[in-house]
Design a protein around this nucleic acid. Structure first.
Lengths: 346, 346
DNA sequence: TTGTATGCGTTATCAT
DNA sequence: ATGATAACGCATACAA
């Protein structure tokens, strides 16, 4: 959309100087008389001149725009991350262009293409559940294109990542359940395609093992969608059999945990009396459910900030350099609420 | 970031034709021999040619990018709207560039500037709570720059807006409380700077009036921040006095409602037995609190879709035309859950 | 059927 | 201290 926006040419014409003079005057280049500078700046001010960022992008092959690929915007954790990304990008004069994949691989591919067409300077990625082939990213990395992966980190060599200590978070949560006296603890697991899911499951298993509990395969319930309904159904199925009823749930995130909690309450069981529950992520609602949900909180905003800082660093460096691959691991924190507090509340 | 991206020139050079020929061949312009077309397209494919969107923007004075200004990303309703926006924009080949104002007027101003510098084709706006002067928008509108306001609609003439029937939503919610037998209904009101807050309050008052209830000024509690803590405190203060204790709460959104619910439960009162509560927005958590929260649901995704469709329409039309101002009002829906169901549950 | 020239807004490189 | 020119990548009016 063309506004009445004044350009350098307009200023030049009006002052009877060349556009290069105007350009230099505006940027306080040496070798421009004070008088000219004053006149140019005054007129620029008056015409409300603002440089055309698109022309600059073309000229400099740099757009001051970064792309963000996320699975879903309507997701407390991811929206928190975006907020952190936005903050740092904005503070450094970068624009953020956003695409959600809705967990579709195809959509991920086309979004990346579209962003590249727009000459983004770098990419922040949390890939989709469907994605198992990462060649669209590794191709870019081979050309030294700056990418930082956050939360969901792909299995590619030499990447720069920001993630949380999912293993430890899960280990701590499970240990906490055990220490509260729960013994038959099931795990509502996330999709196997995500490293975070795998790590959380490993943490869960390690905790059981370290406390001498022999894990049973049927205790691990794969939840592909991660919806409340899904875990509600699985949990109902699993807990309705009085004989082998479990007494603890560690869910790979709070939505699953909430579904499990509703199922367990519907079966007439008491939380935390009969069953202890811990989730993952500390969603907004988690402190408001009844009983309030224990969970592993993730520093989403900080993750966004860190990932963006790293990306901007990479962009600033010369293209020729190789980034040193690294993974920044942020700490999670176990938030103990009533849903897992057997010793106090029952 | 410059990748090894091939340009039209590269193709032209390799095939010993002019770049205009390549340009035309790629776009199936008439008057290019089949043979040339074939050769060009083949090589383009081979070199993985993709047009440079920045160059196109400059050339066409059109960026295929729309800007979105919202108060906060970490907000269930707004993230839902963004999701709707993204969907329509993406489907029409538009990029979305995003800025959150964090409810700061200053930030709103600079975000708009930055977006204009980037030659966005149009703007979707939900303005900040601090904003009382809309000249930054009206200036653009005067130049016929396409803007669609959603949810929070400013007091400017001749704008295009998408909103929900806040008055009716509030009226229905309050009427429902009255019909359930609640008589002393307070209102946790939003900031006066927002039309939506005003409308909701008006709907509340109208419902009381139409049912012969004389509203008391002290029943209207202004909540500036809209946090849970804020409404928790106000509610505690208001309900601890047994003598004049109200028996109903209509909150301008679910977070306030949740704070009120916690306060009321903490005072030992029963919901919905002693006090009925209805919120606004139907956040994800609202069905999970105890008791599940009645609320007025807003079609956020649809709002994003509609607003974007309208904006793209405006962009497509000639700049010279004046858009006909209009306000699209989407329907809310009263979702009745336990928190307000006195007749059934107590 | 194809090529040449020009311009979108800016800046870098040479002049003068 | 300032101006002229070219270039970023593309599309198009005009020539041939």
């Amino acid at each position: 959309m063309k506004l009445g926006q004044a350009t350098i040419k307009d200023i030049a014409k009006e002052l009877n100087v060349s556009s290069s003079t105007v350009s230099r005057a505006l940027k306080d280049y040496p070798g421009i008389s004070k008088e000219t500078k004053r006149r140019v700046k005054e007129l620029a001010e008056k015409l409300n001149y603002r440089p055309n960022a698109v022309a600059l992008s073309l000229r400099k092959s740099k757009s001051f725009t970064i792309g963000v690929i996320i699975p879903e915007i309507v997701h407390f954790f991811f929206s928190t991350v975006i907020s952190g990304i936005e903050e740092i990008a904005y503070a450094n004069g970068y624009n953020v262009i956003l695409c959600q994949t809705n967990e579709k691989h195809q959509r991920e591919l086309s979004s990346v293409e579209a962003m590249l067409d727009n000459q983004i300077d770098g990419l922040l990625v949390s890939y989709s559940k469907e994605t198992e082939d990462f060649s669209h990213f590794s191709k870019l990395l081979d050309q030294n294109f700056p990418i930082v992966f956050f939360d969901r980190v792909p299995d590619i060599k030499n990447t720069v990542n920001v993630t949380v200590n999912d293993f430890k978070g899960a280990y701590d949560a499970t240990t906490h359940l055990i220490e509260q006296g729960y013994k038959k603890i099931v795990h509502l697991a996330g999709p196997k395609t995500l490293t975070i899911s795998v790590k959380r499951q490993e943490g869960y298993l390690a905790a059981l093992h370290d406390h001498g509990i022999i894990s049973k395969p049927e205790w691990i319930i794969p939840c592909q969608n991660g919806t409340q309904e899904e875990s509600f159904n699985f949990t109902t199925e699993l807990f309705k059999d009085q004989a082998n009823r479990p007494d603890g749930v560690f869910a790979s995130h709070d939505i699953s945990a909430a579904g499990a909690m509703m199922a367990i309450k519907d079966l007439g069981l008491n939380v935390p009396g009969d069953v202890g529950i811990v989730g993952f992520s500390d969603w907004q609602f988690s402190s408001m459910v009844d009983p309030p949900l224990s969970t592993v909180s993730q520093p989403g905003f900080q993750m966004g900030e860190k990932a963006t800082s790293l990306l901007l660093e990479m962009i600033d460096k010369k293209k020729e350099e190789n980034w040193l691959p690294k993974t920044l691991v942020l700490a999670t924190e176990l938030v103990i609420r009533k849903s897992s507090s057997k010793k106090i509340h029952s």
